[in-house]
Simulated assay, not measured.
Amino acid sequence: MENYERLSLNQITTEQWNLKEAIEGCARAEVPWIAPWRHKVEELGLSTSKRLIKDAGLKVSSLCRGGMFPAGNASERQKRIDDNKRAVEEAAELGTDVLVLVCGPSPDRDIVSARQMVEEGIAQLVPFAESHGVKLGIEPLHPMYAAERSVVVSMDLANTLAEAYRPEQVGVVVDVFHVWWDPDLYNQISRAKGRILGFHVSDWLVPTPDMLKGRGMMGDGVIEISRIRKAVEKTGYSGPIEVEIFNDQIWSQPADETLIQMKESYLKHV
């Protein structure tokens, strides 16, 4: 991997930047892809976001995020479906065919029902997404996030949800931070052949400084990133590789420095 043609800045890595600054930063650093977050797009406005990305010559690897399907009552669940439809429209407008789904936590103690709500939410969203040329990328999260962010906590669960649909409708997003621990990881990556819609990299720091904002730069932790990348590529995935890091220390340094580190670490450890 001698070049950067697949490298994407997932915008959360430079959380201190608004989307305009992130676009300009990518252009300066010659990072060809960007993965915006919806709240950053909203701040700038959808049409302005689209124009600035296009003018900078950047490509959009994905939009983060849809999902958050489970809720305590039917009307709230419907609100979430409506918001997901807006997310699909935003993804299509920005020129990406991948909407990342962080599927959402359980509204109460009933995790089985919450998973059912995720399944039903995806079923409602698929026809709308397909009509906009957008694929839904289910991103399984690390099990420690089950209570707060997603009840889909393994590649096995994500694959099972995705396999109810055609690969051009629903797939999975492999984020090394969330899946590296899984004893069945390589079998599940093989199982996802033809369905991998995204590959995200960062590292697992020891000790982990914070449950949410404790990800490290690639090479600073314990994940076999390049082994996982090779397994993902063996399935036929050759798309963008997003660097997605939540880390207060990284957010507090100049973001241009972060992009320099990101490129160096990408070449050495991804």
Rank of each mutant, 00 (worst) to 15 (best):
Y186G: 07
Y186C: 05
N187G: 15
N187P: 04
N187A: 15
Q188N: 15
Q188I: 09
Q188H: 10
Q188E: 13
I189T: 11
I189R: 14
I189G: 06
S190V: 03
S190Q: 13
R191T: 00
A192H: 03
A192F: 06
A192Y: 07
K193V: 08
K193C: 12
K193S: 13
K193R: 14
K193F: 02
G194C: 07
R195M: 05
R195W: 00
R195P: 13
I196E: 06
I196A: 08
I196N: 10
L197K: 08
L197P: 00
G198Y: 12
G198W: 13
F199V: 05
F199K: 11
F199A: 04
F199L: 15
H200E: 13
H200T: 13
H200C: 09
H200K: 08
V201C: 13
V201W: 05
V201A: 09
V201G: 00
S202C: 15
D203Q: 01
D203K: 05
D203T: 12
D203L: 15
L205I: 13
L205Y: 01
L205T: 11
V206Q: 00
V206C: 06
V206Y: 06
P207C: 00
T208Y: 10
T208A: 08
P209I: 06
P209E: 03
D210T: 12
M211T: 14
M211H: 14
M211L: 14
M211I: 12
M211G: 05
L212Q: 04
L212C: 05
L212D: 12
K213F: 11
K213H: 06
G214F: 05
G214R: 05
R215A: 01
R215C: 01
R215H: 07
R215N: 04
R215T: 08
G216E: 09
M217V: 00
M217Y: 02
M218F: 01
M218Q: 04
G219Q: 11
G219P: 15
D220G: 02
G221M: 05
V222S: 12
V222P: 06
V222G: 01
I223H: 03
I223N: 00
I223T: 02
E224S: 15
E224I: 05
E224V: 08
E224F: 10
I225D: 00
S226N: 15
S226F: 07
R227V: 09
R227C: 06
R227G: 13
R227E: 15
R227K: 13
I228A: 01
I228E: 13
I228K: 11
I228W: 09
I228S: 02
R229T: 01
R229F: 04
K230W: 02
K230R: 12
K230D: 10
A231R: 09
A231D: 07
A231S: 12
A231C: 13
V232L: 03
V232W: 04
V232N: 03
V232I: 11
V232P: 12
E233C: 05
E233P: 00
E233Y: 06
K234T: 04
K234M: 11
T235K: 01
T235C: 00
T235L: 01
T235H: 01
T235Y: 09
